[in-house]
Structures are given as C-alpha cells and as structure tokens.
Measured scan of single mutants.
Amino acid sequence: QVNIAPGSLDKALNQYAAHSGFTLSVDASLTRGKQSNGLHGDYDVESGLQQLLDGSGLQVKPLGNNSWTLEP
C-alpha cells in the first residue's frame, strides 16, 4: 500500500522509488517545479508512476532490470 502526499513531483517520485524498490533515472530539469497529486493505494510500478506523472506532460519508459526513466 502506497501513501504519498501531494506536492513536489521530485519528492513524490523519490518516495515511490524507495517504497517500491525500483531505480528511477531522471534528468532533474524534467521534473523541476512540477507538482504531483500524490498516490494512495496498491499499484504496480508502471501504473503508480503514470499516476504520479498525471498532468506533468512526462511519460514513463522502462529501461529493464527494474529501472525506469522519464521523457517528455
């Protein structure tokens, strides 16, 4: 069960990665100043990332080996 409060997208993504045990490689300029609506409930990694990114204009991309990145 994930419980991440709304706020900074950077912070939300870092909390989610730490909670879910995956690696997220992101260029900080992509997420700077963006906000997230947070995340509450049970999600697989990709669904949770998509939910956190909702409205940010960013997309999640798998890199393999439980690693992910973001792209515009």
Rank of each mutant, 00 (worst) to 15 (best):
S25G: 04
D27I: 07
V2Y: 10
P72N: 07
A28F: 09
K61S: 06
P62K: 13
D10G: 07
D44T: 13
G38H: 04
V60S: 10
T23G: 06
D27T: 06
V45P: 07
N66I: 03
Y43S: 01
G38E: 02
Y43K: 01
A17R: 06
S36F: 01
D27M: 06
E46A: 11
S25Q: 14
S25I: 15
L39M: 05
D44S: 11
L63M: 10
G33W: 07
A5W: 09
L58I: 06
S29P: 02
G38Q: 03
G48F: 05
F22D: 02
E71V: 15
P62R: 14
I4W: 01
V45R: 05
P6H: 06
P62Y: 15
G33A: 03
S20A: 15
N65W: 08
D44V: 04
L70S: 00
V45F: 12
G48E: 02
D10M: 11
K34T: 03
S8C: 13
Y43H: 08
N3V: 11
N65V: 09
R32T: 14
G64A: 06
N66W: 04
T23R: 09
G64E: 05
L49S: 00
H19T: 11
G57M: 05
P6F: 05
N65L: 10
N37I: 09
W68K: 00
H19R: 06
N66A: 06
A28N: 08
L30Q: 04
Y16F: 15
L24M: 09
D10W: 15
K61W: 06
L49C: 05
L13Y: 02
G64T: 05
S25V: 15
Q35Y: 15
S56K: 03
G7Y: 01
A28S: 11
A28E: 13
Q59F: 10
L30S: 05
G21S: 06
V60E: 03
G55F: 06
S36W: 04
D42E: 12
V60F: 10
S67Q: 12
N3A: 09
E46K: 11
G64N: 06
R32N: 15
H19S: 10
Q51Y: 09
P62C: 11
N14M: 15
P6I: 05
A18D: 08
S25C: 15
S20W: 15
N66T: 05
A12Y: 04
